[in-house]
């Protein structure tokens, strides 16, 4: 029984740790289009590595000054709160995020 409970907890933890649950859910709730944020971030951060490291840093310390979104947009979301995901998972999520829109492979 205890084993089962532990397994379920582990499973839920495991299922929870995924891009959809980590990022998409909240973004839907807050009505922030993940595509738009991606394109805005790409516009500023350019290359893959730069994008990933910059976004990682932003998620941990969101500030209006370093945001890629417009000021008007940001006003609706103040105050900005850091995302509570552990570093390893956050990195994975961001990798997933990049894969989802990767320009290089999708352009024809």
């Amino acid at each position: 029984m205890v084993r089962r409970v532990l397994f379920i907890i582990f499973l839920t933890q495991f299922l929870k740790a995924d891009f959809t649950t980590d990022c998409v859910a909240c973004h839907i709730q807050k009505r922030v289009d993940l595509r738009k944020t991606f394109m805005n971030a790409l516009l500023v951060y350019g290359g893959e590595n730069n994008f990933k490291t910059a976004l990682f840093y932003y998620c941990k310390n969101p500030q209006p000054m370093t945001s890629v979104m417009s000021e008007e947009f940001l006003k609706k979301h103040l105050p900005l709160t850091p995302i509570q995901i552990d570093d390893m998972q956050l990195k994975k999520d961001i990798d997933e995020y990049w894969k989802r829109y990767k320009i290089k492979e999708n352009l024809k």
Binding site: G46, G47, E48, I103
Partner: peptide
């Protein structure tokens, strides 16, 4: 090309 000199298209 992106700022890391990687080809995009």
């Amino acid at each position: 090309y992106d700022l890391e000199h990687d080809l995009i298209f």
